[in-house]
Design a binder for these strands. Sequence first.
DNA 1: TGATCCAAGATTGTGAACAATACTTGCGCC
DNA 2: GGCGCAAGTATTGTTCACAATCTTGGATCA
Lengths: 220, 220
Amino acid sequence: MSVVTSAAGGTEDVVDLVRTAIHEGEFAPNQRLVEADLSVQFGASRAAVRTALVQLAAEGLVERVQNRGARVRAVSLGEAIEISEVRMVVEGLCAAKAAERATDEDLEALRQIGDDMRGAVERGDVFAYSDLNRRLHTAVRAAAGQQVAEGVLERLRGQNVRHQFRLALLPGRASVSLPQHLEIIEAVRARDAARAEAAMRAHLASVIETLPQVGTSRLP
Amino acid sequence: MSVVTSAAGGTEDVVDLVRTAIHEGEFAPNQRLVEADLSVQFGASRAAVRTALVQLAAEGLVERVQNRGARVRAVSLGEAIEISEVRMVVEGLCAAKAAERATDEDLEALRQIGDDMRGAVERGDVFAYSDLNRRLHTAVRAAAGQQVAEGVLERLRGQNVRHQFRLALLPGRASVSLPQHLEIIEAVRARDAARAEAAMRAHLASVIETLPQVGTSRLP
DNA sequence: TGATCCAAGATTGTGAACAATACTTGCGCC
DNA sequence: GGCGCAAGTATTGTTCACAATCTTGGATCA
């Protein structure tokens, strides 16, 4: 494990560094984040680290208790389910908005993603499929043009990347989710808002049902 | 206008003080929040004020730009609508969960709120009705037991209290929203999740339609 | 043996001073 | 008279030292 990641003077840089370190798994859940340690690790001042921790605490990535420091917040399975439930309805809203507002370029991009997904599943390329999954959700959110929803989702996504990531690796998962993804794409392309919302919600409901199989265990 | 609100040493206190000051309208939208001024106004150190501003920026209440300080974030009408759209789907989720999980005490509390609402409308007491409106939404969220949704809603509510507050004062608004509120209560009490969600969404859709009449003008 | 208390170490919170940056005002010049 | 420029002011960002608080380990005593 590297001790000194890089030299970052500004406080904004430290926020990104700590955030990505948490996402990459370099900082495990419940691990203590001592200000002095981070300041030497990232080559930043303790004040910058402190500011970064306050901001990350507000984002829900770390937990801070008075006079006792900060630690990486661990999201339980129950909380991951709650997060996905909220994602379900908010992404449903985005799908509906996307069906109403998407430009022709947006629709073409969605069609392309759908085709690529079929190909990835045929090749059994789970990594490519996982990436396309992420791109699909991003594309729908972008087409929706709902900035507040986008912010909420971004925030929620940051809290359970761990669970999301593991989900795509489940064997046989793709064959379940592919038709759901294609239905979302088709509904948006048909500009049917209600159908798009229903399709997105059905897809995420399926994700929620699958979550318990992933559990809360550590990454390999 | 009072200059010194109170003496608050801790940084958590400063967060609350600034937050309520913004909510009460003491700090107008786009007003600059100079660290030194706030530190003397609240009797806290500049570091505490600084920390508070970082946290409030992450909450979306203030805007911070590098080397240019913080100011109260102004939410446009368009953003208020987007916020309400997200609220619509998330509170819809809460209503559905509430219908599934509410205890008998919860249901009794809802029934009481409904009765009080009828009384307030009959008396023409808009202030009491506005308060009951807030209590109804709070009660539904509490009965849902969905902590993540609650956090998201709390965050969103903090950003447009201004618009929400003005809405209740519109003449004739109560006669429109009362049946919607009663339908929500009845659906939850009937433990009909789908109907509760639909009722909550219909209610907030009506709120969204009314928002443009409120506009973005200042409070009197 | 076990619990309790106290002291030392570690860590966070606070305050003041200093440096860096953006904004403003006044002056000179065209 | 308007425009560019430069010094001055206001404000934020950073650093450092110190105080306050929590944790840990061992000594003391029933």
